[in-house]
Design a protein around this nucleic acid. Structure first.
Length: 500
RNA sequence: GGUCCUGUGGCCGAGUGGCUAGGCAGAGCUCUGCAAAAGCUUCUACACCAGUUCGAAUCUGGUCGGGACCUCCA
């Protein structure tokens, strides 16, 4: 029996999670558009849903986690004919579109690895599923919910709304919008004229001659519309209805709303049971996004090259920073906040390492009140994570336990203050939550420090050699060798080192 | 114009009717050759106004501020 509660954007309620098929979970998360580098904002959904994936897996569920790669940019730019984002940039950078796509896909994968995100089980690409998308569009046309104009195909939102409202699936069910109330942003665009109604959205777009990415279709050469890829790939790999669909809140409308419409027409069933949306990362209170020109790229974050950054931040610091807030709240970025996270994570990690070193004997607690309190706090790890993944509260509880761990380690508290049973439980639960569920990992940032330490030893050895104190110089070299570090006196007088 | 979210102490950020959030920063103490670390103690809060209530940061109404979406966007 699962007692996990998740907030469902569709019902705007926390609901007890119940998989469609006992023991299995289908989860689809909107992946990146690989037309550029990922920024801090992008880190959030993938870390958030990584924790979701990890926790569901921990519950013993067999999760199929699908996260797409959008490698066919397709959107409209104001005042111009439809054009392909990726193709445009490719020209600027003098790259093949697929070369560009590969470059940013690789970079994305690298960043995900840095964050210790577990790769999805299936990572389908939009360009690899053109056939499925065309098939889906054909079905929608056959059912009368889409129309062809001049080589493009549009979804008939009004008709959908009329027919599917009766089935409890009005257009706007997810985002809570009324078609009539929307701001009229229609401008004098060629392709806007093609639409019967301004709310209609493209399923397939005719490719203008300069458009590099193009595929044959029953309607001529073109490329898929904005929203169809996710519907096609989710259906293919997770079935006509699946458990969880995740993504950023900014995708709720129109992207996810359109997915519901397309899939409902095609498969005669609403596609998703639980819609989960993470909130935005803001900077000076404003959403981080390309259009606001306020993004901090992940590479800039990791090496500290952005003007707003006082230093480089380790990916684990970013992960921790994100997990310290609830995923449905906005999270405001600042240098100060990241520095706080860096220190906090260090404190947590050191306590965790100290904890694992405490040897468990067979004590009975001398302070039963404290012992009980800690047991309660451990139990709450589960309570909190099951309350819509409240990672902030899980971490807060851990920090409440940290002083006790440190005090025992420093012998400021005797080890038998709390029972050995409690210590063993602590060791096990800290490991489970910190490493397995929150996915925090030991920082590899020590590498730089190690280099500094070795340089110091090399300098000390050099001084000893200069004084012909070979006892000391040999001691340094030999003991380092015993530790697996080889010092090499180069011909030019410099000293290098390597691991043996 | 519509839909929705939000306003917590120096900073970040939990919390949704009574009970310590937590982290970072600040102060004091203990420990300490010095420093650091660590432990203990501690100061700054719940935008404003009104209402409901025995009791509100938490519910209701209003005011003001910030934001998201309605266009690609995590």
């Amino acid at each position: 029996m699962i007692s996990l509660k998740v907030y469902n954007s569709l019902t705007r309620n926390k609901e007890t999670f119940k998989p469609l098929v006992d023991g299995y979970v289908g989860m689809y998360v909107c992946g990146p558009t690989v037309s550029g580098e990922s920024h801090l904002g992008h880190a959030r959904p993938y870390i958030t849903f990584d924790v979701v994936y990890r926790y569901l897996t921990h519950l013993g569920l067999k999760v199929r986690y699908v996260r797409n790669i959008t490698d066919a940019g397709h959107f409209e730019e104001e005042g111009r004919v439809a054009e392909d984002k990726i193709a445009t940039k490719a020209v600027l950078e003098k790259l093949e579109p697929m070369e560009l796509v590969q470059k940013y896909t690789n970079l994305f994968h690298w960043a995900m690895l840095q964050f210790n995100n577990i790769p999805p089980n299936i990572e389908p690409t939009a360009t690899g599923h053109i056939v499925e998308q065309i098939t889906m569009i054909e079905k929608i046309i056959a059912d009368g919910f889409a129309y062809v104009v001049n080589g493009s195909v549009y979804f008939d939102v009004n008709k959908y709304h009329q027919v599917f409202s009766k089935k409890g699936l009005p257009y706007g069910i997810l985002s809570g919008r009324n078609l009539e109330e929307q701001l009229d942003t229609t401008r004098d665009l060629d392709n806007q004229d093609e639409k019967k109604n301004k709310a209609d959205f493209a399923l397939w777009k005719k490719a203008p001659p300069e458009h590099i990415m193009r595929w044959n279709s029953p309607w001529g050469k073109g490329f898929p519309g904005w929203h169809i890829e996710c519907s096609a790939m989710a259906t293919k790999y997770l079935g006509t209805q699946f458990d969880i669909h995740g993504g950023g809140m900014d995708l709720q409308f129109p992207h996810h709303e359109c997915e519901i419409a397309q899939s409902s027409v095609c498969n005669h069933i609403a596609p998703v049971r639980y819609w989960m949306h993470n909130n935005m990362i803001t900077i000076n209170g404003r959403k981080m996004g390309k259009s606001y020109n306020n993004v901090i790229k992940l590479t800039e974050l990791f090496d500290g090259t952005h003007p707003l950054l006082a230093q480089a931040y380790h990916p684990m610091t970013i992960r921790f920073f994100i997990l310290q807030s609830h995923y449905r709240s906005t999270l405001d970025f600042s240098n100060e906040a990241l520095q706080a996270s860096e220190k906090a994570l260090k404190r947590l990690w050191e306590a965790y390492e100290n904890l694992q070193k405490i040897s468990v004997e067979n004590n009975i607690a001398t302070d039963t009140a404290l012992d009980e309190k800690i047991n309660k706090q451990i139990a709450e790890f589960t309570t909190f994570i099951e309350d819509d993944f409240n990672t902030a509260k899980v971490l807060a509880n851990m920090f409440e336990i940290v002083p006790v761990i440190n005090a025992i380690k420093n012998k400021q508290l005797p080890v038998n203050t709390i029972s050995s049973k409690t210590i063993a439980l602590l060791q096990q639960q800290f490991k489970l939550f910190i490493e397995d569920i929150l996915g925090l990992q030991h920082q590899a940032a020590h590498q730089e420090k190690l280099a500094g330490i070795l340089q110091l030893l090399i300098d000390l050895r050099k001084e000893a050699k200069a004084k012909k104190d070979f006892v000391v110089s040999d001691k340094i070299r030999n003991e380092l060798a015993a530790l697996g570090i080889l010092l090499k006196d180069e011909k030019d007088g410099s000293v290098s080192w390597s691991f043996t």
